[in-house]
Design a protein around this nucleic acid. Sequence first.
DNA 1: CCAGACGTTGTT
DNA 2: GTCTGG
DNA 3: CCAGACGTTGTT
DNA 4: GTCTGG
Length: 212
Amino acid sequence: MCYHTRLTAKADAIEKSSGASFDEPDTYKPTAEYNGFATPATPVIRFDDRKKILMYEWGLIADWVKTASDAKKARINCLNARIEELDEKASYKRKTGNRCLVAMDGMYEWQWESPGDKKSKKTRYLVTRPDNAVFLCAGLFNEWHNRETGIITYCYTIVTTQGNELMKEIHNNGERMLVVLSPEEYDAWLDPKNEHLAFADRSHIELKAVQM
DNA sequence: CCAGACGTTGTT
DNA sequence: GTCTGG
DNA sequence: CCAGACGTTGTT
DNA sequence: GTCTGG
């Protein structure tokens, strides 16, 4: 789960709901589905540049990765980061202060007919806010330096936690969810002084799911 | 001590 | 680069 | 994700 | 029953 998102809102709607402005508006196009495995560039906001919306690539590349081909493999496993283990994982533990917000207006999830049976049927759901508005998720970013080319890749991972009531029901074969933030939590997440574990409980987040 | 991992739990 | 499992 | 472990490093 | 190593 947590590897397929949507951002169909126009640029001005994203700006309005996030309180930041696109640095280069032409680089953003509304997108019905972002596939994490394709490491697309999507809008994010960094803690140290709160008023700017930047296009960063989904799939964090850790500092210790040496080559572009290693990066390609490694980052696919860094599309999500478990909030419970941020302090323990080599790829994240020194980046827990690199907070960012990841914009989206939907997440795709697959519900299994019989959880546990890999062959059972799956139904796709689009999970959104009840009003379908843009929301921001908790993320961590990195600037990866390619030693061979000197090129910097700006990239991020999205933090996950235990699924809340609705998400456990939809994502019944894993029961996790992205750390969707309420608007009141946006700035709190961006402040690295705030314990990240304080954002693990998502039971207060209201979402709805429609089959599609 | 040193080799090997370093991540997630997913593919429409 | 740093951690850790064997 | 699921199979397999689930404990200690002490004793003449 | 729950944790964890592969």
